[in-house]
Amino acid sequence: MIDVVFLLLIYFLLITEFSPREEAYAVAIAEQQAAQRADPFDLPMRPIRVRVRSFGDGAGEYAITTDSPLIGALSSYEALSDQTASRRGGALAGDQSFIIDSSPSTRWEHVMGTFNALKRAEFDKIRFAPPSSAGGS
């Protein structure tokens, strides 16, 4: 019997997959919308739209643009993170909100890479716009 049990043990050891560690970003969905309605006398702060498009299947095949004149040309997630972080508290308010505008075909990894860049710059008000085809594929 012990032989059979050992065989079973080896079998389950082999089929059990030890996948790499996963992590998660907590994104407040309802809170962001409520916060924008909180005080009717507050001047509305225009959110910055960050457009992200994929032009290939590779991890580095993406393009990021924004509709803000305060942020220059962006070549990578790092550029987005660096530029927004350097203007945080100055040209950009600490609670500046961003909308990530992705096309239907934008790869999820590129959306999340953009999200991470804004989180690295310590911006918390980040929303995901519905898929839009405006501005390219």
Binding site: P20, R21, A24, A26, A30, F115
Partner: peptide, 21 residues
């Protein structure tokens, strides 16, 4: 669908590039 369910916070799963197994 998560938003429509009235759930306030959703967690988006990623894999850190330098994460150990």
């Amino acid at each position: 669908a998560v938003r429509a369910a009235g759930i306030e916070t959703v967690r988006l799963v990623i894999r850190p590039m330098d994460a150990p197994l």
